[in-house]
Design a protein around this nucleic acid. Sequence first.
DNA 1: TGTACATCAGTGAACGCGCGTTCACTGATGTAC
DNA 2: TGTACATCAGTGAACGCGCGTTCACTGATGTAC
Lengths: 248, 248
Amino acid sequence: MPGEVTPLESASRRARRLAREEVIGAIVEAGRRQLATEGAAALSLRAVARELGMVSSAVYRYVASRDELLTLLIVRAYDSLGEAAEKAEARVARDDLSGRFATIAHAVRRWALRNPHEYALIFGSPVPGYAAPTTTIGPAARVPVLLVAVLTELTADRVSQGQARRVVPDEAVDLAVRRALAPVRAAVPEHVPDELFLRGLMAWTYLLGAISAELFGHRHNVIAESPGARDAFHTAEMARIAAFVGIR
Amino acid sequence: MPGEVTPLESASRRARRLAREEVIGAIVEAGRRQLATEGAAALSLRAVARELGMVSSAVYRYVASRDELLTLLIVRAYDSLGEAAEKAEARVARDDLSGRFATIAHAVRRWALRNPHEYALIFGSPVPGYAAPTTTIGPAARVPVLLVAVLTELTADRVSQGQARRVVPDEAVDLAVRRALAPVRAAVPEHVPDELFLRGLMAWTYLLGAISAELFGHRHNVIAESPGARDAFHTAEMARIAAFVGIR
DNA sequence: TGTACATCAGTGAACGCGCGTTCACTGATGTAC
DNA sequence: TGTACATCAGTGAACGCGCGTTCACTGATGTAC
């Protein structure tokens, strides 16, 4: 009846709910493992069911469709990446802004190298016919939020020392470009100059470009294959990007 | 018999060969159209056959397997991109190096926006289970070759004016990084400084990162969706990258 | 000019496969009286 | 404490689909003598 108080959950209902959540967790885990070995295109509910020893139709008790499983996996991937970056960044001294930036970049790359198919799922070519629901927006923003924090503090820092004009790039940003950035500008403190924000966004673009190039094979025959060489190159490229943004 | 001279091709054999090449062309075109509407994962020999009004087994007279068709499509995509960039770049005055750079970047992006699935095929997540044969290396290098030419002339230019040290970035490049770049360094004239070459490579990485971000939807809610806004942003970001490389 | 043979594009049926999703069902467990 | 009913996880068969690839074949065309 409308207006009625929802009754307290009984102990057994609660137990059922917990069991249910556990099974959903197992399904997502199985999907993740499938992703890791076969890639997103090969992901199938039937294979997930097989891995869990269920009959394929049983999975539908927990997940409405293949697309819904895909969404769960995407959210999980963003969260896993976000957590990795946040944890790494939290260990750096707060006033070491360039250390924080380098650590975020490094953590993102390390996560990508360890979870290449999950990386491809969220940053590779879109899965045809799949449209991400809004549920993914929050988790997707976790790393960008860390970067914006660095930019914000970078500016606060410089401003308080009265040297903003010299250290932070401060070219004029076209009106057209300022308009292009309008959607996201609201999420960034006003005292961060347009040019700095633009460059921060470019740094994020660069980081994903570099990782994609490495992971998707576009650095074959270009950069030596040994992990040492790749690490060295990554450190060098990100150092230059940090300087480009004005993070010191 | 070994040692025998291969006989001249008869007129009819020639006719057959030409017809054959035409059909292969039609198959590749059909594959391309399928790619454009469905994406690489959905590409199938059966669908190609259907589109051409052939029975599916007939396609095997021309193409050994699905993977071989994929290779043909990849080569075609690289060539189409390379040609677009070369043609656009050729129209710019030779001594306008920054114009050449901006034009290459712009041509690559325009090609990508017009051929999003072909772009995804060559620069997106790799197709699972497919390994590109060496046939693709040459076509894949066409755009990078244009960029290297700009770097080369940029250096020659500055050197001849005796101002290389000031205009071209000339930081020290780590030994480890120089080693990492060894595979490709041989393809670049010696007088191009390591730092400049490194930055040129970064510009290419950036360009693909920016296009991928735009095409794969990672600028949703970040940059305004109108074509005008996106164009303005692209111009702005590439101008900054050109300055970063030292192209003026 | 005529005939036996070779070449090869295209046919049609079949193989074995995996997929997403639906549906009527069984059977265990919990709930209300 | 006992009984009728509700809930819901899991079953098993089935639907209709598309895929890559193989194979024995037909029939048109060209070639050699």
